[in-house]
Amino acid sequence: MDPYTTAPRSSRWRRGVYAAGIVIPFTASQLWALLVLLRLAPLDGLVGQAIVLIGLGSVAAIWAGWRWTWQLGRDKDRQPAPKTRIPT
């Protein structure tokens, strides 16, 4: 371990937890609304096409929210470990 590296800051971890606390309820509500719509709406004609677009939009929103959460919680200051070369 390199003695000159700084310790990871806890604020990044806290931001990731807070972001997850926001994203998890919205993910659950998106999935619930989509399941209710799929159960109640007829899937023929324009309604079926609209449901497909709504489903794709829900997937994109969920993906963007979790990507945002991952980026907030990640420690960007950390450098990858150097590759060690084994002499042959």
Rank of each mutant, 00 (worst) to 15 (best):
W66C: 03
S10P: 10
K83H: 12
R85N: 07
A60L: 11
A28Q: 09
T88V: 14
T69G: 01
I86L: 15
R15E: 03
D44H: 14
T69V: 04
W63G: 02
I22G: 03
T6E: 12
A7N: 13
K76W: 12
L38S: 11
G16C: 08
P42N: 06
A28I: 11
I54Y: 02
S11A: 13
T6C: 10
T6L: 13
W63A: 07
R67W: 13
V36F: 11
D44V: 13
A60Q: 05
L72V: 05
K83R: 12
D44K: 13
D77K: 06
P8L: 09
T88F: 10
S58F: 09
P80G: 00
S58W: 08
T27F: 07
A61C: 04
I86S: 15
I54P: 00
L34F: 09
G73N: 03
I54Q: 02
A20P: 01
A19P: 02
A61T: 00
R85I: 11
G57D: 01
L72R: 01
R78V: 06
Q49H: 13
L35M: 12
W70R: 14
V17I: 15
A60V: 09
G45L: 00
I51C: 06
I54G: 01
T27S: 05
V36W: 08
R78G: 04
W66H: 01
T5H: 10
S10M: 15
A81P: 00
G48Q: 05
V36L: 07
G48C: 05
Q79C: 15
V36H: 10
L46S: 08
F26N: 13
S29Y: 10
R74Q: 11
L34V: 06
I24K: 06
M1Y: 14
W63N: 07
M1V: 14
A20H: 04
A20V: 07
P8Q: 07
Q79F: 14
Q79V: 13
A60S: 14
Y18S: 15
A7I: 14
V52H: 08
L46V: 06
I24T: 08
A41R: 07
T27P: 02
L40Y: 14
R78W: 09
L53V: 00
D77M: 08
R12N: 03
T69C: 05
K83N: 09
T27E: 05
W32N: 12
R9T: 11
T5Y: 11
W32I: 15
R9Q: 10
W70E: 05
G45R: 01
L56N: 08
S29I: 15
W63Q: 05
R85D: 04
V59M: 08
P3Q: 06
L40V: 15
R74C: 10
W63T: 03
G16A: 09
R9A: 13
R67C: 13
M1I: 14
Y4E: 06
A41Q: 07
R9K: 13
P42S: 07
